[in-house]
Design a protein around this nucleic acid. Sequence first.
DNA 1: GTCTATAGGCAGATAGAC
DNA 2: GTCTATCTGCCTATAGAC
Lengths: 201, 201
Amino acid sequence: MQNTETSEAILDAAQELAQIRGYNAFSYRDLAERVGIRTASIHYHFPTKGDLGRSLIARYAAYVADVCDDLERRSPDAPTRLRGYAALLEQVLAPPGSTAAGSGRVCLGGMLASEYPTLPPEVQQEVRRFVDDNVRWLARVLAAGRDAGTLAFAGAADAAATALFAALEGAMFVARTAGDAGRYRAATDWLLSALAPPSAR
Amino acid sequence: MQNTETSEAILDAAQELAQIRGYNAFSYRDLAERVGIRTASIHYHFPTKGDLGRSLIARYAAYVADVCDDLERRSPDAPTRLRGYAALLEQVLAPPGSTAAGSGRVCLGGMLASEYPTLPPEVQQEVRRFVDDNVRWLARVLAAGRDAGTLAFAGAADAAATALFAALEGAMFVARTAGDAGRYRAATDWLLSALAPPSAR
DNA sequence: GTCTATAGGCAGATAGAC
DNA sequence: GTCTATCTGCCTATAGAC
């Protein structure tokens, strides 16, 4: 990825389509129409679709990791960090330039995870890393929160983090199927309140 | 769907492929190879791929609904019903005829939900119904369990049911990405224990 | 960097013989 | 019910001019 303006525009178009339809359901032709160039020109920037996919998820993972870093630096406690994380994924459903609720987008990481077996190996690798990184980050926040007394839950933080991540990703699919973005909020609010200590409930 | 032997064999092959790759990533050719007939013959049973998809998810939904009915009749309490439901989805990952752990399958309903925007309308309708039915069933079990004192959680049963369903479906994708079916178990066990009343924890 | 032109393959679907 | 043959259109990717 060379970070030229064109390649960024290609990635922007690809990300929107991948978040809505998935990696296997958009084509170089779709991209070409949106960016205003020819399909052959896209191959100049990304020789194969696997190259494109790898750049796409890598850029997305870097963005999410940045926000997580910010959350850790600026949020005072674990519950706030978790709320910030849920909001990050929610924001991804309706990015700045789009009409809030019904964009039809879901988290790119979750979408690619659902397509995992059909993905080129280089894309699979990045998806695996994305999921691992996010679950590990959540496990860290969860464990720290329990130690500090701002969260309360039984069992392993690892298992809780996996369940939480799975629920957030899955809730996007459920919300989209129902055509109701509010379902995502309702489910995540419930989850986060279930992790609050009895004193805060 | 006429329930002939051939059409059932087609649906069996289609279900396996759809659970692994998704609806958009298997073809009539894939089916023809597995069933041992020609693609044109499949069109005799299912004129369009949308017809096939509708029959596929309808059959699956009916099976899941049957198991849920059994669970309600035979299980003594809500925690047992929820464990049975989680086990049902887990069993779906590794059906009788396949090698347990790494079948690469996920719940058909979750897979189709992830492909929702690209699905033919008649398939979307059945997917919506599947998700609704399952969340409603879970909400009913959850509410009854709380009333009976065998479950403990705060907030709306609807929101809890959505979160639980989302978590179970999402955990399959996470487990598959990690190549570790045990992750599904770990996440669901944690979730169910989090719903247990303090006395049972 | 972007273009035209094209290759080679696969998709879903149909016509009509048997 | 299953077959052969075929249609039309889309896909990723490449060659080579500008």
